[in-house]
Simulated assay, not measured.
Amino acid sequence: MLPLDNKIDHTIDEFEIKGKQFYFKEMCNWNLNRSNYIKAWQSAFQRQDMEESLDWMLGTKLNKTYIIEDSDGIIVSAYSMLKNNCLINKNKIDIGLCNNVFCNKKYFRYKLFDRISHLSLNNSSDYFSFAYGFPNRLAIRGHQRVGWSLPDPIKLYSYQISKIHSRYNSKASSEIRELNSFDSNEAKFFCEKIAQVSREKAEESNNYRISKTSSYYNWRFFQRNILKDRDYYICYNDSAISFFSVYKTDPQLNILDIQWKNNSAFISMIFELINFIKTKSLPGFRFISRELFKLLELELPNLDINVIEQIPLIINEFNDSKAFNPQSINLSFSDYDVY
């Protein structure tokens, strides 16, 4: 976890609703707010776990978090934006992933969701060119009400290994390792490598492309708390690299992020993943990357493909520039915090 600077939260705005005073702040010190925030989060979501995951998600400089406190200093609402990067026609911009939005049920009739949304988005526009999010379906209407647009959903693809033709049993020249086997120097090397490949591909492209930094990859995969229900791996060769996870309770492989310099390196890595899946007796693999889908369809046409789910996507383009086309961007599981 990347610790936040030792700063004191500062009040950005204060307001009164139904005779009660509230204070809108940017949360600058996770350690100072940790206990108060976790209690508020657990109360809002009715969950009594997730402390380590919240340490990982909220205790990083990458995540900008806004809170509303009541007059007793209790957090009653929160709204976060996780920093990511995107290249649009080769120009780098900062973008924000909306995450961990909640309101205390005690203040249900105070419309704090609308209030914190407007305040947080207004302040976020000073730091990000646009924001995106993957809300649960019950929250979509509320996000639309405060200005988010709802483009076409993201397709969740599933490839079933049972249909693979025998000609795909070629010996792979890639390697797979579990992430917990890496020391800090190795982790740094692979994060820099995949970030470099991602950046090079983005610079070669003339449209929209997420281009994550090595710091983002390091936080996303190597600083994450240990989760009991899944293991994380890396598959790589000289010109391609992929992070993936394997769930234990409902065995499945999720390709979280995949970058390649050429198609032959990509195919080598897919062969190694197929061998891994067969060894582990997994049903196949899942992903959301449209770019990965197109190349698999081209190179491995006998794979049995299904769209098993439509994941809601919301977009908020600040300053109403209309320069961003959500249909042209390629998202992966690593671009949000769930998988």
Rank of each mutant, 00 (worst) to 15 (best):
L62M: 10
N100T: 09
M269K: 09
W219V: 05
N306G: 04
Y336T: 06
Q310L: 14
N225S: 13
L256Y: 01
M27P: 06
F108I: 10
R115E: 14
E272W: 11
D257W: 01
L62D: 05
S166T: 03
F324P: 03
L82G: 07
E204C: 10
Y339D: 08
L303D: 01
Y110M: 07
L295E: 09
N319L: 15
I38V: 14
A172S: 15
R220I: 04
D257Q: 13
I161F: 03
R177F: 06
L273R: 00
K18S: 09
S124T: 07
H10G: 10
Q223T: 07
Q327V: 05
V146K: 04
L62W: 07
K7I: 09
I277A: 01
I226V: 13
E186G: 04
I116E: 08
P312A: 00
Y66L: 12
N262A: 12
L82K: 07
L54R: 12
S205A: 08
T213A: 10
S174T: 02
L253F: 02
I74V: 10
Y23M: 05
R137N: 14
Y339F: 09
I315L: 13
S43C: 13
F128K: 14
Y159I: 14
A78R: 15
H143T: 05
P151Q: 01
Y217T: 08
I74K: 12
D320L: 09
Y168M: 01
S328K: 13
L303Q: 02
E272D: 10
K83D: 05
N123R: 14
E299W: 00
S281E: 09
I95M: 09
P326V: 05
C28V: 05
N33D: 08
I75Y: 08
Q259H: 03
G147S: 15
I95G: 12
S281T: 08
L32Y: 11
I67Q: 07
R145C: 12
Y66W: 15
N63R: 09
L300Y: 00
Q42D: 04
N185R: 14
L150D: 04
A78G: 15
W260I: 05
P251F: 08
T213I: 07
F128E: 08
D304Q: 11
S205C: 06
E200Q: 12
D9I: 12
F318G: 10
N104V: 11
K280I: 03
R230H: 08
I38F: 04
K106V: 13
L97Y: 15
E186I: 03
R290F: 00
R209I: 01
P283H: 01
Q259N: 11
I308Q: 00
Y107T: 05
S173W: 03
L303E: 01
N325E: 04
K261F: 04
